[in-house]
């Protein structure tokens, strides 16, 4: 699993992905880790198939007992079907996840980990030495869905928003935005159901100072590409499977 440090100043943001051993027919995912002095948060830690490579990669940065928090942006299997295994590995940890998905996510196995429900309006994750904001991103694509914003590093972990279907050896960052657009278009048109939800999210995100927009699939948008993405997404009509 490739490991890339996105931010390193007092604490770290690390992205894991592009697993060369991943089965062909599984969608490639990016997993994120925030490492503070004595605690770690894993964001969208991934599917069951990814558990072993993901935990092995995390152990390069922290002992298992310092992985204290998990975050699941929504209920999809590629996000968190590994929960039952994390439940074995991190019996003291907390899972921050949308309140409406609690009864569903528990089907993956969540007996020891504490489920901390995120209400629709959002909230925060307190890691002791730092605090993260939970930005509502409902219906993009999941009906209960959140982004994580870190005001210090200015990284917005955007879940499936900004996702692109890429080959497993693609670079971690967007290099040519106009070329990248075609890898995102179908996914956003087909998976995102609501233009209203999309516009609400764009409005929220425009109020934030975002240096990096980091999705769960594909490449990370940096600097001006963040604004380019917001403009592109704003102009895109979604909910494409229903012809009116």
């Amino acid at each position: 699993m490739k490991r890339t440090t996105l931010f390193d100043s007092g604490y770290q943001w690390i992205v894991f992905g592009r697993d060369p051993n991943k089965a062909e027919n599984l969608i490639d995912t990016n997993q994120y880790m925030i490492r503070t002095a004595n605690r770690c948060l894993l964001l969208d830690p991934g599917g069951t198939e990814l558990f072993a490579p993901m935990l092995a990669a995390a152990l390069h940065y922290a002992p298992v007992e310092e992985i204290t928090d998990l975050f699941a942006s929504h209920q999809d299997p590629d996000i968190i079907s590994s929960l039952g295994l994390w439940d074995q590995a991190l019996p003291e940890a907390k899972l921050h996840a949308p309140a409406i998905w609690e009864g569903f996510l528990r089907h993956f196995g969540c007996n020891r980990i504490e489920y901390v429900p995120i209400e629709d309006a959002g909230g925060t994750i307190d890691l002791g030495s730092m605090e993260l904001e939970l930005i509502p991103a409902h219906y993009l694509h999941s009906s209960g869905n959140f982004n994580v914003y870190d005001p210090r590093s200015k990284i917005l972990m955007s879940g499936d928003i900004g996702a692109a279907i890429e080959s497993h050896d693609a670079p971690m960052f967007v290099e040519d935005f106009s070329e990248h657009v075609e890898k995102m278009r179908y996914f956003h048109q087909r998976w995102m159901p609501s233009n209203r939800a999309k516009n609400d999210w764009i409005k929220r995100v425009r109020k934030l100072d975002v240096e990096m927009l980091a999705p769960q699939h594909g490449r990370i948008f940096k600097g001006d590409d963040v604004e380019r993405f917001l403009d592109w997404f704003e102009a895109l009509s979604v909910g494409g499977a229903v012809q009116v």
Partner: peptide
Amino acid sequence: EANRQFKAVLELGSDAAYVDSL
């Protein structure tokens, strides 16, 4: 299944700094 997975972690992470913690 969990046992199989944790064995895999130990193998994949054999060069990781904190593998002992597992």
